[in-house]
Design a protein around this nucleic acid. Structure first.
Lengths: 149, 149
DNA sequence: GTAATTGCAAAGGATTTGCTCTGGT
DNA sequence: ACCAGAGCAAATCCTTTGCAATTAC
């Protein structure tokens, strides 16, 4: 496949001090991330790469995802079984997701209210340098309809 | 120390259909949980039991914590490294915590605002049967002070 | 006596690390 | 030639399971 990634590469690579040297593997990973929707585990992403004929090691996938998530290029959340799931970050600002318990589809949601809440209650408890984890899980419209049948 | 647990045992055991046969190990675990504050990993709890001279297997600790958390007798959260931390549930209603990144101490915080927020944004996305995970991590007053020295 | 509970040892599963090989510049 | 990046294999770490020995009732 010779087409360009639908997402301009620079948009994903231009963090400061680009840590990744443009290698075939890095590019393949970024491309796949750009095409996938929703959250996927490192192993799934690795499988997807191989499916596409890209020869990339699992270790490499892990290492890149780690860096990308530190650089805020991808979001990382943990599912209920403790696996880490990654997804290309659509927006730059901080946000959260509702993930479908049944099909895994996920949607970003506005989170200004939580940010403020987190700041406030943490401050009330005297805590500083606060960070938060917020994940919503539910049934998406489709799956809810199916379940109703 | 031979004193009674400061927390009346019935308060912890009276769920419906007590699933646990009164064994020495189960009682020791419940007692320790009653004395500990904040969240602790199964391994820490196990270590604490041994420190007190109680001979309880790690497997048993894991098995009990699993059941207790299903029965909502303890809260279970996952820290940033993926380990599961447990704590005796202080209140019955839904609530959240700020946990100190450094010393592990944790404080319950009021969460009505998030509950409402979660409901709202999930509904906007068309999701139903929504559940949420919210954890705050920061530095508690003491640890913050130490860090400042 | 009998079924539930223990706990050791081993298995599992995700992620990380050691270290050598490879490819880009 | 040099160095970052790749990747295999082995190591970690938490947690769960298999199964025989033990214990509560």
């Amino acid at each position: 496949m010779t087409s360009q990634s639908p997402v301009p590469p620079q948009q994903l690579e231009q963090s400061r001090g680009t840590r990744v040297r443009g290698t075939r593997q890095a590019e393949a990973l970024v491309t796949v991330l750009g095409k996938l929707t929703g959250f996927h585990s490192a192993q799934e992403i690795h499988a997807e790469l191989r499916r596409r004929g890209e020869r990339v090691g699992l270790t490499t996938v892990y290492r890149h995802l780690q860096v990308l998530s530190e650089d805020q290029v991808v979001d990382a959340i943990r599912d209920e079984s403790g696996e880490t799931l990654y997804r290309r970050c659509a927006t730059v600002s901080h946000h959260h997701h509702v993930t479908c318990r049944s099909c895994g589809r996920s949607v970003e949601v506005e989170g200004k209210a939580v940010e403020r809440w987190a700041e406030r209650v943490a401050a009330e408890a005297g805590f500083v340098d606060v960070d938060h984890t917020v994940e919503l899980f539910g049934l998406c419209p489709e799956c809810a309809a199916q379940a109703r049948e």
